[in-house]
Design a protein around this nucleic acid. Sequence first.
DNA 1: CCCCAGGCGTCCA
DNA 2: TGGACGCATGGG
Length: 219
Amino acid sequence: MSTADLLVSIYERLLRAFGPQGWWPGETPFEVCIGAILTQNTAWSNVEKAISNLKARGVFDPDSLLGMSQAELAALIRPAGYFNQKARKIRDFLSWFVKTGGFEAMEGMETSALRKSLLSIRGIGPETADSILLYALGRPIFVVDAYTVRALSRHEIIAPDADYREVQALFHENLPPDARMFNEFHALFVRLGKTNCRKTGPLCDDCPLGTLPGYPPVV
DNA sequence: CCCCAGGCGTCCA
DNA sequence: TGGACGCATGGG
């Protein structure tokens, strides 16, 4: 079985097991950007609390958020954890966002150039940048996260210590650049990880991926 | 009490 | 380049 067929097979199994996930769990591209920063190494339930604090205050827009002090912002996003760091990250992102010209300007930028620009923002790393590209802007960029790496490595498709670029290349080089499919695929990895793919111990016997027997490690 | 969550920057070899 | 560490709340 080719690597491409293997990846498609995984996608189909996850989709059959869990159904469409309907990501991103936010209403607007702006909310995706803020959520992507807030969810860094943090449970989504905590991010929801932080975002609802901002909405309740009526400050969930670039100008209002930039208009308050970093300490005020930090207090509002406290439930999301790392609140001092994330307050600075949000401010740095929003400064960039305004300077760049907002979503209208971003739409006009080439994906690779936009990705580089996002990565130049302090606090925006590969996963956060790619989440914005895919889920806020609909670019065909595959998002790699801890769940993705864990699932793939536990099924011996990648090495446990494979780096971000390597894992992303596995998808980019073996699947058509379909943003809708990348969207659903990554969300399904998260869905899988939340219940079925523990860090250690035996593979779950009810794993939708089964044992995927006989596949040599790809990477 | 423990462990973990949809990372990232810094420091140091 | 890459491994260790700090950042922090809330849920199981």
